[in-house]
Amino acid sequence: MKLRVSAALFGLGILLLVLAVGLPLYVAPAVTKLPYDLEPMTSVAEAKNARFLQITAEAETVTIEVPRADLRSTIEVVPQPGLTKDELPKALRGDAVIWDVYQTVRRTDNDRDITAYSTQLALYRVSGTAAPWEDQWLKQDDSDGTPLGNVEYSGLTYKFPFGAEKKDYPLFDRDLKKTFPVAFVGTETVEGIEVYRYEQQIEEQELYTPEESLQTLLGAFAPEATTGKVIYRNTRTYWVDPVTGIWIDARDQPRKELRPDIGPTTVLLDADFNYTEDTISSTVESVKKNRLQISLVRLWAPIAAAVLGLIALAVGLWLFFSAGGAAGRHSAGASVAGGPAATKVDQDPS
């Protein structure tokens, strides 16, 4: 019986040690990738007393103005597992996922939309960077009628890599449709989680504006001008969980100005968007859940499996030697007991 239990414990110990080695090597990589069945995510940011361009068409009257009001920006990320499976080219299958992303910016006082866009793109599952997918697209409905059209995404878009590092990354800017560095600037704590803070500074750049849209703006704000340009700049700040690469908090400070060749400069957009408290709290809960899953697979489960495996091996070996020693003592005792009895029987009765 002891030998059977010993063999079972020995086998269990080997299995647990194999599991301890296999979890970080084979299972951990799977939990540090964007899953195909990721639940849709929503983030909300608000800008207080923002200045923005609003074009209102009622009947035959078109009103172009730059009012002030509080704005709310809502971004919805909707993963597309079906498209990921069927539409990605062979070279990207297994390494990338397809996301649909929708953003709407609206006034909070009258709930009127100011701008909206939708896009479909492919992201690498580990790095979070945009994958080179030919079918990506971007559609925008601005109040000034400026379309962004098709796009070639590159760099980071909606998340940082799993295992983010203290270094600069290329981050895509949707208005200019190219990447600019987002620099690591320090470590902070948000609701008990240590995060990396990154900042992207985009200095003044001329924003492509179709001639028809430009003339509409000039007619409203600089009627004596013959030409002009729209200048854009932005400062973005991200508080990123380095384990999962998720933005726990974010700040976006865009500014756009119309600069005519004749006449004063007109501010078309000046806003300071910050994640709402509800968005931060929801993101923190998601990060804690994902961190726990990753740490279990990477560290605690392998440690537990290794410790239990060593205990099982030790107990199994002890039982094996214990069973072997008892059998040896029993055999020796039987030989000694049988010696005198045999001698007595063999004695001559006379």
Rank of each mutant, 00 (worst) to 15 (best):
K166V: 04
T266M: 08
W133F: 12
A69H: 12
A7I: 08
F180V: 01
F172Q: 00
P254A: 01
E224F: 07
A312M: 10
P132E: 03
D168S: 15
D278V: 11
D175E: 04
A122Y: 05
A305Q: 05
A45W: 04
Q54A: 12
L171H: 09
Q201L: 09
G186D: 05
F52S: 00
A326M: 09
L92D: 02
L317I: 06
N110R: 06
A45D: 08
K177F: 03
R4A: 10
P40F: 10
I14N: 11
P79T: 02
L310R: 01
S118E: 13
E285A: 15
Q253K: 13
V105C: 03
R125L: 06
Y238W: 13
A220I: 07
L176K: 00
P254L: 02
P81N: 11
D346F: 01
D113V: 15
I14H: 15
W300K: 03
F162K: 02
W300E: 09
V27F: 09
I246R: 10
A7T: 07
S335W: 04
L92M: 06
V77R: 11
V21F: 05
F52K: 01
T61W: 13
N110A: 07
M41T: 15
S118G: 08
I193H: 04
V101E: 12
D70V: 06
P302D: 01
R51Q: 14
A7L: 04
L38G: 01
P349R: 12
L23Y: 06
G328D: 10
Y117I: 04
T146V: 14
D142Y: 05
A116R: 10
L296Y: 11
A304V: 14
K178Y: 05
R259K: 15
Y117L: 12
D37Q: 11
T146S: 13
A337H: 13
G128K: 00
A225C: 07
N49T: 09
T63Y: 12
K178D: 02
G228K: 04
R197V: 14
L123E: 00
I202Y: 00
G325Q: 04
D348G: 00
T283Q: 14
N274R: 15
H330W: 14
M41G: 04
A301Q: 02
L121Q: 03
D37Y: 10
A327Y: 01
A222H: 10
G263K: 08
Q80S: 13
L3H: 15
K85V: 11
F221E: 01
W99V: 04
L156C: 14
I14R: 08
L12T: 00
V97S: 00
A301W: 13
V336S: 11
T56L: 15
I311M: 11
R298S: 05
D111N: 08
P349G: 12
L214V: 03
A69N: 13
P170D: 12
V315H: 13
L218V: 00
V66K: 07
A326H: 14
I231Y: 06
G219I: 11
W300A: 06
I64R: 07
N110G: 01
Y208S: 11
